[in-house]
Write a protein that binds this DNA or RNA. Structure first.
Length: 542
RNA sequence: GCACCCGUAGCUCAGUGGAUUAGAGCAUUUGUCUUCGGAACAAAGGGUCGUACGUUCGAAUCGUACCGGGUGUACCA
């Protein structure tokens, strides 16, 4: 359509313009363009006059049922039924067809409990992976976990005290208490670290042992708790509706390569400073950061360089996406700048997408003793709300409601999480959409006529058909910008549009049953496809 | 201090150069309906788009300054 209009402009005014089409208020038309206003200056004529002239040319185009000029010179176009239906059949653009992409879709650290922030990060990462796939990319989902370093020392400090020399005391922790137990162990270690110097020194030694353990008991506890953590992480991430990852990367694997790389690039990229190897990020819009500590140990940043190598060896990606909270924005800016100096041919490959953080609306909702919200508790809360509505709270349904809550806000903004609101199930929520889908399928079950594929647009169908035709545009936009919230907004509007239609137009038993059933089916399929991109299950009934 | 992000209705958020009434959801008030599953639909009230200048035919959207909030600022991850 943009080209059609550009051609008309060329023909009438001999001007090359980039035509921008917008969606006006439906009362004005299906599409609008301001080309006439753009042309006013170069042509030295009134925009209104140009618009009128262009409009009469455009009226000759068959797909355009109506072309009008409004305001200072906007051209509004109303499509005919054929064009509206053609829009529904359009597919999203395969803009990343030849690309191989690696993306981290979750990265909780072992030895700590997963909380709402991890769920947020995992859901965002997984959905972005879906958006990449929709545009044709070959996507590899991976995870990355910090299994070495100070936080491990903190946990091991309390774990060794708890074991008191006897490994079986740790082994005895029942499965359903492990998450809370580990969380408590970490919290105690953290407190001790801040508390006194003796504990601090001991924790530093125990952190050191995460690289080179000194005792058999350390190894036993470390291995067991790490395994527990990964079981917990995998189970939880699956429960959230994420597609499983292909590979788990560990900091302990990335460390060695990272340190070697840094050492190899002194002084051309890294410098020695107070015994540490640092990168002068301040010269690259970030901050100066140590990659290797003064005792020769690899730090987080060095491991990220090692991880880049591991990813490259396995996947040779065109792009590698890392989704993190905005606190890490400048940190990644520095790491990526360093990486691009070390590997100039990989410039632009690694991209950090920064998200907001989850904030709690009140202090009151914190789960039991901690100040964090555990994911299992969240599932329980949603489950209760769904039962309250007479529904069955399967994980797929609960995860759908939770995912939507996180995805409907523009990526990068903080999410203020209010459990009462999240669980409400009415209005702009995942539950509304899931319910809308189940309802549509239920209508189709009752239809006895042969469902007729959409071939014509009747008057009362128009707004719904037009909305359905916007689907591919919305997916393109969300995919291009990697912003899932566009899809949420659209699906909600679509469902509202359908509910309005459904309110006024009887489907089952009407003399137009076959035709209307076709519309309902297209709607349900569109809803299902959109929800799938968000990783939300569209139930047949609920 | 410096850098980055943010400030839109009572609350939570869309909208980021265009047009009469700046839109949703929640909350409030009212209506529809003996429901093709009401987790619905229709409607009302509620906003000087943080403030001030500026650019533009046109600014919530761009620029500058200020006010308010958040985050980051090397040997944690």
């Amino acid at each position: 359509m943009n080209e059609t209009i550009a051609e008309a402009v060329k023909k009438l005014f001999d001007q090359d313009v980039e035509v921008v089409m917008t969606r006006p208020d439906p009362q004005f038309g299906d599409w609008a363009t301001n080309v006439a206003l753009q042309l006013a200056k170069p042509l030295g004529r009134s925009p209104r006059e140009i618009a009128e002239e262009l409009a009469s040319e455009l009226r000759r185009i068959e797909d355009f049922a109506e072309v009008t000029v409004a305001g200072p010179g906007f051209i509004n176009i109303r499509l005919n039924g054929t064009a509206l239906l053609a829009a529904i059949r359009e597919e999203p653009m395969a803009t990343r067809k030849e690309q191989t992409i690696v993306i981290e879709t979750n990265n909780p650290n072992p030895f700590k409990a997963m909380h709402i922030g991890h769920a947020f990060n995992a859901i965002l990462g997984d959905t972005i992976a879906n958006l990449l796939a929709v545009s044709g990319a070959h996507v590899h989902r991976v995870s990355y976990h910090g299994d070495v370093g100070l936080h491990v020392g903190k946990s091991m400090y309390s774990l060794l005290r708890y074991a008191d020399g006897d490994f079986s005391r740790i082994e005895a922790i029942p499965e359903d208490e492990r998450n809370t137990f580990m969380s408590k162990m970490y919290a105690e270690g953290s407190r001790a670290y801040k508390g006194d110097e003796a504990a601090k020194a001991e924790i530093q030694d125990l952190a050191e042992q995460s690289f080179e353990p000194k005792s058999a008991l350390y190894i036993q506890i470390y291995d067991l708790c790490k395994a527990w953590s990964f079981e917990q992480i995998d189970r939880t991430v699956a429960r959230l509706g994420n597609v499983p990852t292909e590979r788990r990367f560990l900091e302990s694997d990335a460390d060695y390569r990272g340190v070697l790389t840094v050492q190899k690039h002194v002084p051309d990229v890294f410098q020695e400073s107070d015994g540490a190897l640092i990168f002068k990020g301040s010269e690259h819009g970030a901050f100066d950061n140590a990659f290797v500590s003064s005792n020769g140990r690899g730090l987080y940043a060095a491991r990220d360089l090692g991880l880049m190598q591991l990813k490259d060896e396995q996947y040779h990606p065109d792009h590698s996406y890392i989704v993190t909270a905005e606190e890490q924005r400048d940190y990644f800016k520095g790491v990526i700048a360093a990486a691009e100096l070390v590997w100039p041919d990989k410039k632009g490959v690694t991209v950090n997408i920064s998200t907001g953080t989850v904030k709690l609306s009140t202090g009151k909702m914190s789960s039991r003793d901690g100040d964090v919200i555990e994911i299992a508790w969240l599932f329980d809360q949603f489950g209760e709300a769904i039962v309250g509505r007479g529904g069955e709270p399967t994980d797929a349904i609960v995860a759908g409601a939770l995912r939507y809550q996180f995805l409907k806000v523009k990526i990068g903004s903080d999410v203020v999480f209010d459990i009462g609101e999240a669980v409400s199930l009415t209005g702009n929520t995942g539950s509304y959409l899931q319910y809308a889908h189940a309802r549509a399928r239920s209508i189709l079950d009752k239809v006895t006529a042969q469902v007729q594929p959409l071939t014509e647009v009747k008057g009362e169908d128009r707004t719904l058909v037009r909305k359905l035709g916007e689907y591919h545009e919305v997916v393109d936009q969300a995919s291009k910008l990697l912003e899932p919230h566009h899809i949420c907004n659209y699906l909600f509007e679509l469902a509202q549009e359908f509910n309005r239609y459904y309110e006024k137009n009887q489907v089952v038993g009407s003399d137009q049953e076959a035709h209307r059933a076709g519309l309902v089916m297209t709607y349900a399929d569109t809803l299902k496809a959109g929800l799938a991109i968000l990783g939300i299950h569209a139930p047949e009934r609920m």
